[in-house]
């Protein structure tokens, strides 16, 4: 599998959120994307998913279909007022196998149950999703990712507003995924979590500040540079003429 960023630029109203980013995510490894607010972390994940169109450059995916990626967005747009049971939501993880008309098969339902067991919510299988707390709901979304059985997993700030116990439980899935040879890319805000669970780090502040072994990337010097770069904002910035292929 290959996930490569080739001189990628993504802007909102001409202001780049991701600026001439090139590099390659290590396959079968867990990479954290770290950086201050407004550093383009979520935008980068969305662009990998094809939910944002790049201005220039491209995302090269080899050995993995885009629709086979498991993606957990930062703000889920799930309408939790709908009358849907937890198990039904988790079983949508089998969408690839069941498709739009075929129902979820036996193996798919087994996988969904197994996933609910793993995140400790089997008792809640038939409860409506509206009855869950924020943390429980995040466990459900992780159960769906388990059900998707994806080789590439993208998580966008998965532990916002989640308590310590749930965060720890869910983080324990990361080493498991690595041991199964899956690639995990997660936007995180907690340095300790990164150091403990993610061997690789991309430090992003619209541009790549550093990318490599987490211990080498997360130095005070790099972190300061990241904050400075992200805070820098010029409303009437001149037009960029960088030819990123050289950069």
């Amino acid at each position: 599998m290959k996930i490569e960023l080739d001189n990628l630029t993504v802007s909102y109203q001409r202001h780049p959120a991701v600026h001439h980013v090139s590099g390659r995510f290590m396959a079968g490894e867990a990479t954290a994307i770290f950086g201050p607010n407004g550093a383009g972390k979520s935008t980068l994940l969305k662009t990998i998913m094809g939910l944002c169109a790049p201005d220039s450059g491209r995302v090269r995916l080899e050995g993995v279909e885009r629709q086979a990626i498991a993606y957990l967005p930062q703000q889920s747009e799930i309408d939790r007022s709908l009358p849907v049971a937890v198990l039904d939501l988790v079983s949508t993880g089998c969408w690839q196998r069941s498709s739009w008309f075929r129902r979820v098969d036996r193996a798919g339902m087994d996988a969904a149950w197994q996933a609910l067991e793993t995140v400790g919510l089997a008792d809640f299988a038939h409860r409506p999703v509206s009855a869950l707390s924020v943390g429980q709901f995040q466990r459900v979304l992780f159960a769906r990712i388990l059900t998707q059985n994806a080789q590439l997993i993208l998580l966008d700030e998965p532990f916002n507003a989640v308590d310590a116990r749930t965060t720890e439980d869910l983080l324990e899935l990361v080493p498991r995924w690595r041991s199964e040879g899956r690639t995990v890319i997660a936007v995180l805000h907690n340095e300790e979590h990164v150091k403990q669970y993610f061997p690789q780090t991309l430090l992003l502040a619209r541009e790549v500040i550093a990318w490599g072994n987490s211990a080498e990337v997360l130095t005070d010097d790099n972190l300061h540079r990241a904050v400075d770069t992200a805070a820098h904002w010029l409303e009437r910035a001149p037009v960029c003429h960088v030819d990123g292929s050289a950069a």
Binding site: M49, L51, E65, R66, Q67, I69, Y71, P73, S76, E77, I78, D79, L82, V84, L89, T92, W95, Q96, W100
Partner: peptide, 11 residues
Amino acid sequence: LDPVFLRSVGS
């Protein structure tokens, strides 16, 4: 229920 998920799985 979940439009982003549906798009992410390619539908």
